[in-house]
Design a protein around this nucleic acid. Structure first.
Lengths: 234, 234
DNA sequence: CACCTAAAGACCTATATAGGACTTATATTG
DNA sequence: CAATATAAGTCCTATATAGGTCTTTAGGTG
């Protein structure tokens, strides 16, 4: 056997999602229907669906059905980060401003992760954490696929979570994340944005997110100034 | 049905591991034997074992058997961290020195996570990353259970990974980790240890690890000085 | 002795079947 | 009309069964 049936079925379902045939939030046929349509047994369908649910592609709801994971139905504790109060309990509110959407060339640190592309789209964002301090973030996406972003007005993104937008409009949910970080002086261009003196040390945080089929999708660099508010990664 | 059979069986297996009846690395009875012993069907046993394998408690090996996860058989990419070269490829070698093993009182920041205990055991460690910089770490464990550590000679830990030691000798593997971090001036007592001037900013990294049954087991604080070597969390 | 073969034992995949549990919509009833 | 009961549709659990694949060991063969 080259590849188990349940994985073949799982891959076919992912293909349909990628193709836009199944949109985020859409309901899949029932287990029994899928078994009949695909000519496999019920148990095998269940195995496929459970497999995809574990990797965050689908959401299963007892008595209701199986759905494509969307922003409203985060499958896993979708890889996110947030800032806490000192007590470690309350989550601080964050507002984001999209500064610019830029067309950038094929060279850059993102190419190592995202792969070669004719150009890239770079989103510059400034996050405000509870009015206490600011965080600067650069998010890069591969060119052709996300080209439509270039035409958009940055103001339209006020209060919108980028990840949710990419999930909704580009069928590009964040399913897994790799991360690296260093501590050191923040780049000169970043210091004024996060309102700290030049040469202030801060956190350089690099996030590399993958979507369906483990395809590299988002390369993100986040710069945090010093603060006593704990950053929690979940 | 109050609790599914496969979960009851899984919990029973975890209990046996916790009780020391099944040691890390030990082989479990075969699926068929377990099915007969526990008077359940083969499929249910498989579901139990797969469930425990996914949460990192067991390791399944095709054609060989099912084993209790141990330091040599890391089930998942066990939550670890490491330092990389700038290229992000090569892993820098780290050597650790155990500075002290201390008996500390019931109060402290660890109590919030580990819970109340008559006392705690605190391990002070200094890591040397490729001879380039040092990292200071404090690891706290709940009193009674880990009391035996107090009698040990810190020198005996040279070159030993603490997590592996706890897995082997205390049946206490790290199965999940929560983490928080802040950037700011390193505490005065830490600066000389990591060989930086006072008031140097660095990373305060708090790790809270759980073992079997999601029981809080390890509270760790790590202090990193500035460096251009990326810290990778996996 | 070295190499190949066969068998045993383990996990892995797949099917067919049965009933339970949860959710929602519909129909019944007071 | 409101509360309840029913039914349909869905996922969830469990069993029994069959054959496959992988690893190791034991024999056989040159």
């Amino acid at each position: 056997m080259t590849e188990p049936i349940y994985l073949r079925l799982a891959n076919r379902i992912v293909q349909r999602i990628e193709a836009g045939e199944l949109r985020p939030g859409a309901q899949l046929p029932s287990e029994a229907k899928l078994a009949e349509l695909e000519s496999v047994s019920l148990g095998t369908v269940q195995r496929s669906l459970n497999h995809l649910a574990e990797s965050g592609v689908l959401v299963r709801r007892h008595g209701r059905g199986t759905f494509v994971a969307s922003a409203e139905t985060p499958a896993q504790d979708l890889k996110h980060f947030r800032f806490l109060d000192q007590d470690g309990e309350t989550i601080l509110p964050v507002t984001s401003t999209l500064l610019a959407i830029e067309h950038v060339g094929p060279a850059g640190p993102w190419a190592a992760f995202l792969g070669a592309a004719p150009f890239f789209v770079l989103l510059r964002r400034l996050l405000d954490v509870n009015g206490e301090f600011k965080v600067y973030s650069e998010l890069t996406l591969a060119g052709p696929r996300f080209e439509a972003l270039l035409a958009l007005d940055p103001k339209a993104f006020d209060g919108v979570l980028i990840r949710d937008y990419l999930t909704q409009h580009f069928n590009c949910p964040t399913l897994s994340v790799e991360q690296r970080m260093t501590v050191g002086p923040l780049p000169p261009r970043v210091c004024p944005l996060v309102e700290v003196p030049r040469e202030t040390s801060g956190l350089h945080w690099e996030l590399m997110a993958r979507s369906y089929r483990d395809q590299p999708a988002i390369y993100q660099r986040v710069y945090l100034p010093p603060s006593d508010r704990p950053l929690q990664i979940i």
